[in-house]
Design a protein around this nucleic acid. Structure first.
Length: 578
RNA sequence: GCUCCGGUGGUGUAGUUGGUUAACAUACCCGCCUGUCACGUGGGAGAUCGCGGGUUCAAGUCCCGUCCGGAGCGCCA
């Protein structure tokens, strides 16, 4: 007879029933005459009792941790004083009548049983965990994370289906296009010397689906970018990609915040108030020094550029921007030095400071503070003001990094899920290295038509219909309204220094599609791994991916990447340089 | 490419100012134990301290190099 129920699902309702269980030995307690086995499956653990003299006793004596066994027995209530409140099945137990070993197990490289009985797992280095990922995946934490991910994805399918979206798959083996990140390349056997590229996103395919009239598309899409890894970045990662026709920016934002509220409700049971607050890019940068501000705490900047303009403090007198951050604490010098290092790592020349102690401004740049400062910034007793001056963007971003560091150090970050939209991104960004304008989002983003007149005369001033969904200071999603007219797309390419010939060669298929009657359209992509990590309370997306790569981009379970046979290379016309 | 942090039995840690036999917990093996639930209890095995070199009478400890891992910067439309 096969399994009749999951171990973790047995409850008082099953008392008196005969059950067949199959699972892993989470733990075995041998009292000499009496043996207990905590039997585990994906739903939880359940105590099995093996009485002396019973048929299964000899086998139970032999069984060890992580062996896979089948148990037949009868469910009974535990005496009230022996209930285990830490586990869901703690009020019952199964008296074994038969026990069969299905599979023996070697001693595990690390213990995985604690989480299943409601305790903290022992910390194990990630190196060991990833090399032994099968063992690691047995732990309750990863079971929970992967099931949360599943719930998240099924909620997305339900919601978007009810809103009339259809899921369409787009190719993995596609063409390299010169945008954004480095491509992963796949050599072609049928055409040696030519390469496919793995998609960085399904961007152009979804736009063409819009041109083809599918109106509302989505995909849980795997994307590939050959860049260095971080706690929240993997070379292959997952997006929720969606696109809508005949919409404005408002429509996309509205749908996405309803979707966000729905998935949070479905996964965690939390109500998220709508609509989400909105900040323009300029506001976000000026007030928080980030285009993905963490709004779980305050510490907003004050602009004091005018206060110092032309003044005696040379370093600030002619700066493009001087920003101040008022800290409600008397920061020790050591702390300020650490914060200055953070500012400098983001390109600030330094971090100036002043405190109010015993009624007077003291320390740092106290003697350079003009009397008019207090009209903008009231430094109270025991507070510290921090200043960064320099080019606008570098100043706000470096002070923004200081703000985040202070949020952590002063424990200002409140728990919860804080969503916001950042809108009105600039269309173009000045590329200092190459001395030219480049796109900020991607080259298919529509300019704000109100700003179109400045496209040639003052490109930096043109806003885009581009928006980011920010969750607790991380970019949860980003998208835009796209250019749907061929002439405007061609103008955009020209502005980016992509000549007509090059545009035709690399993006001819897009231009052609746009010339066959394209609807206005726009969409968004969510970083699905980051979303799930956030909901699971995990710092790293590796905790919500079954088989992640380590910091060096290696998948240490199977040992990828690896060398390949010379035969394989030869077939592809590839020679590896020593 | 760069900065910082780490590497000690299977796992997680301790190891003082350089000083004798590298400690603890857990896991593992064996014995005892009939109501445990991280069972208890007695015993046992298990580490050339990531690797190489140097300083020293003496290095887990100090120095240099290197490898591996993590956090970040650059990079990531």
């Amino acid at each position: 007879m096969r399994r009749t129920t999951y171990c973790g699902k047995v409850s008082e309702e099953n008392i008196g029933q005969r059950v067949v269980l199959e699972g892993w030995v989470n733990r075995r307690r041998d009292l000499g005459g009496l043996i207990f086995i905590d039997l585990r499956d994906r739903e939880g653990i359940l105590q099995v009792v093996i009485n002396p003299g019973s048929v299964p006793f000899a086998e139970a004596d032999r069984v060890r941790s992580e062996w896979v066994v089948r148990v037949e027995g009868t469910v009974r209530a535990r005496p009230a004083e022996q209930a285990n409140s830490r586990i869901a099945t703690g009020k019952v137990e199964v008296v074994a009548e038969a026990l069969q070993t299905l599979s023996e197990a070697r001693t595990l490289p690390f213990q995985i049983d604690a989480g299943w009985r409601g305790e903290d797992d022992q910390n194990v280095s990630e190196d060991v965990r990833l090399r032994q990922r099968v063992v690691d995946l047995r732990r309750k934490r990863l079971h929970q994370n992967l099931r949360l991910r599943h719930k998240f994805i099924t909620a997305i399918y339900r919601f978007l289906d009810s809103e009339g979206f259809i899921s369409v798959e787009t190719p993995f083996l596609t063409r390299s296009t010169p945008e954004g990140a480095r491509d992963f390349l796949v050599p072609s056997r049928l055409e040696p010397g030519s390469f496919y590229a793995l998609p960085q996103s399904p961007q152009l395919f979804k736009q063409m689906l819009m041109v083809a009239g599918y109106d509302r598309y989505f995909q849980i899409a795997r994307c590939f970018r050959d860049e260095d890894l971080r706690a929240d970045r993997q070379p292959d990662f997952t997006q929720l990609d969606l696109e809508m026709s005949f919409v404005t920016q408002e429509d996309v934002l509205d749908l996405n915040e309803r979707l966000a509220a729905y998935v949070v409700k479905e996964t965690l049971g939390l109500e998220i108030p709508l609509p989400f607050p909105r900040l323009t890019y300029a506001q976000a940068m000026n007030r928080f020094g980030s285009d993905k501000p963490d709004l779980r705490f305050g510490l907003e900047f004050t602009d004091v550029t005018e206060v110092f303009k032309g003044g005696e403090f040379r370093a600030f007198a002619s700066a493009q921007a001087v920003k101040a951050l008022l800290v409600p604490a008397n920061l020790p010098r050591k702390e300020i030095d650490a914060l200055e290092a953070v500012a400098k790592s983001k390109g600030a020349a330094g971090l100036a400071w002043v405190k109010r102690e015993n009624g007077a401004l003291t320390g740092g740049i106290a003697k350079f503070i003009p009397p008019s400062l207090h009209q903008h910034l009231e430094i109270a007793e025991g507070q510290t003001a921090l200043f960064v001056a320099g080019p606008w963007r570098r100043s706000v971003e470096s002070l923004g990094a200081v703000r985040l560091e202070l949020g952590k150090r002063l424990n200002l970050i409140e728990s919860g899920y804080n969503f916001a939209w950042v809108i009105d991104f600039p269309l173009l960004d000045w590329d200092e290295d190459n001395q030219r304008w480049t796109y900020m989002h991607h080259p298919f983003t529509s300019p704000n038509l109100d700003d179109l007149e400045h496209l040639q005369s003052d490109p930096g001033r043109v806003r885009a219909y581009a928006y980011d969904l920010v969750l607790n200071g991380s970019e949860a999603g980003g998208g835009s309204i796209r250019i749907h007219r061929r002439d405007l797309q061609e103008r955009m390419f020209a502005q980016l220094g992509i000549g007509a010939e090059e545009a035709q060669e690399k993006f001819g298929f897009l231009l052609e599609a746009l010339s066959y009657g394209a609807p206005p359209h726009g969409g968004i992509a969510w970083g699905l791994d980051r979303w799930v990590a956030n909901l699971a309370g995990e710092e790293s997306i590796r905790e919500v991916i079954a088989f992640p790569k380590n910091k060096e981009g290696k998948e240490t379970l199977t040992g990828a990447p690896s060398t390949v046979d010379s035969d394989q290379l030869a077939m592809l016309g590839i020679a590896v340089k020593e």
